[in-house]
Design a protein around this nucleic acid. Structure first.
Lengths: 140, 140
DNA sequence: CTGCGAATCTGCACACTTTGAAGATTGGCA
DNA sequence: TGCCAATCTTCAAAGTGTGCAGATTCGCAG
């Protein structure tokens, strides 16, 4: 995802308006590595802008995802999460505390795959589940 | 997932009761390659057993999943799907019609992965998205 | 700077999936 | 045959996400 300033430019270029709500969400998402849910962002945003609506948070995040500025992730944690990292990467989820981290995988072109006959695959995602370092330590 | 007869044995062995509802679901899931949702199974089950409740379908499927007889899959299609195939395999989903097929991947031990430091990974799932043969043909 | 119109935001209702809880029913054994 | 715990049904509710209507506001033209 680009910087708030660049996004402001891009929005204007597309004829979209720049509102305080959008600018706040640009800032909250830029460089954000927490993979937050819309609800979580709404909580944070509400602190800096009381009265902002959850509906606007969803709306803006979906717009950014449609523009390719961020990825929406369904990692099986109940709510969709948003990731400003648009690199080709994957994720690991802690089954206990739901912490999420980016995972980089290379060499996948060497995989031998069967069952995709006829499918036009546009996306491949790898999801790792397990326990994060903290939860691993606690459960021992 | 084992056969209805074997499951009946296994349930009894665990002190669980054999009910007509459970037996019906055993039959409906055995060898089922459709990756149905609880709602879809409920529809089918209702035809053969009017009055069966959706709650019971969820309950029984979750029990079977807990016992390791089937897998519950969150493939991002809105509702969880159930798969009696407990082999080590993955899935491809058609983004247009939601058709799902099993995919077998080998050679994943040759992948080079970074970002899992400290995580105790218990499961890895690969999800392919795209268009199925039928939808590919229609969209051309 | 002022005012207009379209875009945006808010607030609410609703759809959908899944689970919790309570009471009615029933399988399995004495 | 009867009992009791397990199970089933029914209803309500939690949680996530979207549609819609009306109020508000951004951005531009004058």
């Amino acid at each position: 995802m680009r910087s708030p300033a660049e996004l402001t430019e891009a929005f204007r270029a597309h004829g979209l308006k720049i509102t305080p709500q959008r600018q706040l969400l640009f800032r909250l998402m830029h460089g954000n590595e927490c993979h937050p849910t819309a609800e979580a962002l709404f909580q944070t945003a509400s602190e800096q802008m009381p009265g902002i609506s959850l509906r606007t948070v969803y709306q803006t995040l979906n717009d950014l995802a449609t523009m390719g500025e961020l990825r929406s992730l369904d990692l099986g944690t109940g709510a969709v999460r948003f990731d400003p990292n648009t690199d080709d990467h994957h994720h690991v989820v802690c089954d206990h505390c739901n912490e999420i981290r980016d995972v980089y995988v290379s060499g996948s072109d060497a995989l031998s795959i069967s069952g995709l006959d006829g499918f036009a695959v546009s996306n491949t995602s790898i999801l790792f589940n397990g326990l994060c370092p903290r939860c691993t330590a606690v459960s021992e």
